[in-house]
């Protein structure tokens, strides 16, 4: 019986992973875009991205575009796999295969 992934299950982290997983494998989202999509605050988003990064589910790249710092977050292969398993478990719960 599959288990829900505790790291992904938190609502904001679920949104982050869903957003990143909707992109092609190597594509990422800028921090500002992710903030707009999830409706999170800077601090909250940063903290949850860090949790996902520590779990190896996302990679964080910091670069300068001109003089502006730009942070890009990308789902890793491990993160995509974990997200797919998490979604499958949610679907199993709805189908009544798990109680």
């Amino acid at each position: 019986m599959a288990e829900l992934d505790d790291i992904i299950h938190q609502p904001l982290r679920l949104k982050i992973m869903a957003a990143l997983n909707a992109l092609p494998a190597t594509a990422g989202l800028e921090f500002a875009r992710l903030k707009k999509l999830t409706g999170a605050t800077d601090g909250n988003l940063g903290a949850h991205i860090e949790t996902l990064a520590k779990a190896g589910y996302v990679s964080v790249d910091k670069a300068f575009v001109g003089k502006k710092p730009q942070t890009t977050v990308t789902a890793t292969a491990a993160g995509r796999g974990a997200f797919a398993r998490h979604v499958a478990t949610l679907q199993e719960i709805i189908a009544g295969k798990q109680v």
Binding site: H9, A18, A22
Partner: peptide, 8 residues
Amino acid sequence: ALADIDDI
């Protein structure tokens, strides 16, 4: 949770 995923 799935609806949240679809929405995002």
